[in-house]
Design a protein around this nucleic acid. Structure first.
Ligand SMILES: [Mn+2]
Ligand SMILES: [Mn+2]
Ligand SMILES: [Zn+2]
Ligand SMILES: [Zn+2]
Lengths: 133, 133
DNA sequence: TTTTGTTCTTGACACCGTCTAAATTTAAAA
DNA sequence: TTTTAAATTTAGACGGTGTCAAGAACAAAA
């Protein structure tokens, strides 16, 4: 795992304490945090960081392809540090969003869709995560 | 097409002028209206109807299975008068949501997903609708 | 009719994300 | 160094979305 400073420099984004705090949380996250989640956690390292800066930084990272915004929750977008193609499973009870590897599922029939030029797609599944022992 | 009064009675929902206005618009819609869309159109027939009543009615219809809420747009849910299983294609340029028939696509590999009990799923595709002559 | 209880509707409120203008920090020029 | 310019951050305001407590309307009971 590269550190935040290296990542920001490699993308041509000037590193600031605020941006470093945001990157350190969101790119290492294994969940799908909302902007509010990122704000809360970033303030532990950088207590004065503002909501606007968090949004600016997250949108900058998304524009650079380091993360992807996903429309999976009602009312708010979530930020996904896994920017590669994959599917999602959403737990009915908890709302937790799980990544499903791209290779786990196959979708057939896309090529037959006339009138639609598909740029990207994903399967969204909902249900319950079974108890693990 | 049954009229709103009949539909409401058959579902055991007491018909009121507000609910009739909502049902008349949303169940006949061929698009995927937001609550705001439904509010605007309902007020043409029932000018005093409030936002809260529109939400109450839409959620009631969803609970009865007459429509389905879908998380497809940023910032707002949309209400789908097509409550049967189907997929969605979202136009990058316009944001318009198109229904893709269930039979058009097939998803394989779900049965191999251990730890996940799938209740429902759909494919969400994004891209451009090609020009139609 | 009056009282009581239930259902329905609504205005007010909280949350999310964007925008602006001012303040701060950093960098470049003189 | 001092001055100027550019980039970044911040607080607060704003518009849009969805929820809630309280009042209005309605129905049942007395
Ligand atoms: Mn969260
Ligand atoms: Mn709309
Ligand atoms: Zn993901
Ligand atoms: Zn649909």
């Amino acid at each position: 795992m590269n550190d935040a400073l290296t990542i920001l420099r490699r993308c041509g984004i000037k590193p600031t304490p605020q941006r470093i705090a945001v990157v350190n949380y969101v790119l290492k996250s294994t969940t799908h945090p909302t902007a509010e989640d990122v704000l809360d956690h970033s303030r532990k390292k950088c207590p004065t960081v503002s909501r606007a800066t968090v949004y600016n930084t997250l949108n900058l990272l998304a524009a650079k392809g380091l993360l992807k915004t996903q429309v999976l929750k009602e009312g708010t977008v979530v930020f996904d540090p896994n920017a590669r193609q994959h599917h999602h499973f959403i737990d009915d009870d908890t709302g937790v969003i799980y990544d499903i590897p791209w290779s786990s599922l196959a979708v057939s029939g896309k090529e037959k869709l006339r009138d639609y030029e598909v740029r990207e797609y994903q399967v969204i599944l909902r249900g319950r995560r079974t108890k693990r022992k």
